[in-house]
């Protein structure tokens, strides 16, 4: 039981972590609660679903879907959020606007793909992998691997590349970065594309694992966002471990109480953390929230 709890935490947590890291990355250059994060993942999944329907080979499907979701992410950023921010929109206003964008997106997906739930692969033929002490579905193993690879890659990218350092500079102070001549727009766009790819991957994996629904975006967003916030929104590692912690807490809740209280547990933890430790688990205390 304990072993299952830990493995499942790793699987679920990795799924949350992908969204949490994307949320965190986006937030570092475009600081507001972006409600469209989940939509970007859902778009990737649905594009893959459509392309698989046309009979394209898998590698092409993945490439095109990732391109589509990163393009979508970039378009939202330069088409809507950046111009709004330039006109002095507060984070609150941006959040409401992104909520509107999300609502439109969900309806458009409804109109194109219908409200039915769709899976990318047949459930009964999903591969099982023996990892010594237990069997685990291949796609769930891929979720874990993807999440860890993205985590390691982002850590390297943010700390050891020039672009990464620029992103961190914008994160520290957008105004200052502007003054010393860093091209803000270019940086924001790079981040938007990068998040698009991470989220697109998540969307495809979710499509294989549990399937796609037009309304999926909100659930993805909420769990990822909670993970990112309880870990301490200002660091990448915080987002990653926060997501894992959320999955662990949910699973312990399911093991001790009942599965119907899962959402309640997630949000109680979220509020408790924000009230008692607003800087997150993995961050030293700062004075300004």
């Amino acid at each position: 039981m304990l072993l299952h709890l830990l493995i499942n935490t790793l699987i679920v947590g990795s799924g949350y972590a992908l969204v949490a890291m994307a949320f965190r990355l986006m937030n570092s250059v475009s600081p507001f609660f972006n409600m469209t994060i989940g939509a970007i993942a859902v778009l990737g999944g649905y594009i893959a679903y459509a392309l698989l329907g046309f009979g394209l080979p898998l590698y092409l499907v993945v490439i095109i879907s990732l391109l589509a979701s990163s393009l979508f992410s970039g378009l939202l950023e330069i088409g809507i959020y950046t111009p709004m921010r330039k006109h002095g929109a507060s984070p609150m206003v941006l959040m409401v606007a992104s909520l509107g964008v999300y609502t439109i997106f969900e309806s458009v997906i409804h109109l194109i793909f219908g409200s039915q739930y769709q899976t990318l692969g047949s459930i009964s033929t999903s591969h099982m992998l023996n990892i010594g002490f237990m069997e685990i579905p291949l796609v769930q193993l891929l979720i874990i691997i993807t999440s860890f690879v993205v985590w390691i890659f982002l850590n390297y990218y943010l700390h050891h590349t020039f672009m990464g350092k620029k992103i961190r500079a914008v994160n520290d102070s957008a105004t200052l970065a502007d003054i010393i001549g860093l091209k803000n727009n270019q940086i924001i766009l790079t981040v938007a594309f990068l998040t698009g790819i991470i989220l697109g991957l998540d969307g495809i994996l979710v499509g294989y694992d549990t399937g796609l629904e037009p309304t999926l975006g909100f659930n993805l967003l909420f769990k990822g966002m909670i993970g990112a916030i309880i870990g301490g929104i200002a660091t990448l590692n915080g987002a990653f471990f926060g997501a894992m912690f959320l999955a662990l807490a949910e699973n312990v809740g399911v093991a001790l109480f009942a599965s119907e209280w899962r959402d309640l547990i997630a949000f109680v933890i979220f509020i408790a953390f924000l009230s008692l430790r607003p800087q997150g688990i993995f961050q030293k205390k700062e004075n300004n929230q």
């Binding site: 039981m1 299952h4 709890l5 499942n8 679920v12 699973n251 399911v254 093991a255 599965s259 899962r262």
Partner: peptide
């Protein structure tokens, strides 16, 4: 009785618990 919400997508632990 094991109830779950309409949008539940992860049954791993719930089934593991019942299996015990």
């Amino acid at each position: 009785r094991f109830n779950f919400n309409m949008d539940s997508l992860d049954f791993d632990l719930m089934l593991e618990k019942a299996k015990q």
